[in-house]
């Protein structure tokens, strides 16, 4: 199995971003997804910068994939999208059917992203026919639901599973970060930059429930399938995705790698992780339960 680093879902300063990807360049991750997938107003890093970074990471031996914006609303969003799908160098992850269409038209193989809603074998086969060389399973898909997909998938199609990080659960036209600050979206003053891991939404009982990240809503809990590495492998999963968090991401990558290489046990790795995660772990979706449930027994000893 390979390890992938998903696109950074947050908005960081250029310095922080640069520092982050420098560390990633030397981390044991095989694939790096780059690009702004959440909000077109986030402008500190533009496409030429992403392409430059993509080249650097390629030189460092990583497979680089450019991820497209998930919610495409305007002509200017489409312009950016076309610039990405027309880049002749790097593979593209399509996060909207519009992106899939543009890539299909050019006959370019692509990664079918999570939000394309590939829930059943006929849709999976259709995406493969249109040019998908890899697909990322929907966030909600369980191990049991994945099995028939794996059995039916066309030869050579790779399967990727979101295995670590706060889960993107919803997208809106409304910016919830701007709303929090009573600012209109068009004059948001880029407040996302003050929240490197998003803005936590608590219930009135003080339970961390969701995370507001601009127009995206995430789980507060961290989806963590480290304890399921062998199950994932048995299920024929090719790639595990780690989603960037503001802190300790290279460390998390290392812990996954070491567990996969059997250098440490999942139990030991998880004990280390517990101190480094922004919130407690969950893994409900993988087990066919509510996403926020935690089924894996963290307290298990070696």
């Amino acid at each position: 199995m390979k390890l992938a680093l998903g696109p950074n879902l947050y908005y960081w300063s250029q310095d922080k971003q640069q520092e982050f990807y420098s560390a990633i360049a030397t981390s044991p991750v095989d694939i790096v997804y780059l690009g702004e997938t959440v909000c077109s107003r986030r402008h500190l890093i533009r496409l030429p910068d992403w392409l430059e970074l993509a080249q650097k990471l390629t030189d460092a031996g990583k497979e680089v994939v450019l991820s497209t914006q998930t919610l495409i609303e305007s002509e200017s969003d489409l312009k950016t999208l076309r610039r990405i799908t027309n880049n002749k160098t790097f593979r593209v992850e399509a996060n909207d059917m519009g992106a899939a269409r543009l890539l299909n038209e050019q006959g370019i193989p692509f990664v079918a992203g999570q939000t394309l809603n590939v829930y059943n074998p006929s849709t999976l086969n259709l995406m493969a026919k249109l040019g998908a060389m890899r697909w990322v399973i929907p966030m909600e898909m369980s191990r049991v639901a994945l099995m028939p997909m794996q059995a039916a998938r066309p030869e050579g199609l790779e399967t990727e599973v979101f295995s670590y990080g706060r889960m993107p659960l919803a997208f809106s036209a409304r910016c919830f970060t701007a709303r929090h600050y009573n600012l209109p979206k068009d004059d948001c003053q880029f407040r996302c930059i003050d929240h490197a891991d998003g803005l936590t939404l608590n219930t009135r009982e003080g339970e961390a429930f969701l995370v507001l990240n601009g127009i995206q809503t995430q789980s507060a809990k961290v989806n963590n399938l480290l304890g399921e590495v062998w199950e994932l492998q048995k299920a024929g999963v090719d790639i595990l995705r780690i989603s960037p968090q503001a802190f300790h991401t290279p460390r998390m990558v290392q812990l996954f790698r070491d567990t996969m290489d059997e250098k440490i046990t999942p139990q030991k790795a998880l004990r280390t992780m517990q101190k480094l995660m922004p919130e407690s772990a969950c893994d409900g979706y993988w087990h066919g339960k509510p996403g926020l449930d935690r089924l894996y027994a963290d307290s298990m000893t070696d």
Partner: peptide
Amino acid sequence: VMVEGRCSLSSYVTGES
């Protein structure tokens, strides 16, 4: 409020979306 078809808030809490 969310883009329909791209919201799994309900299954995050209840298992059904």
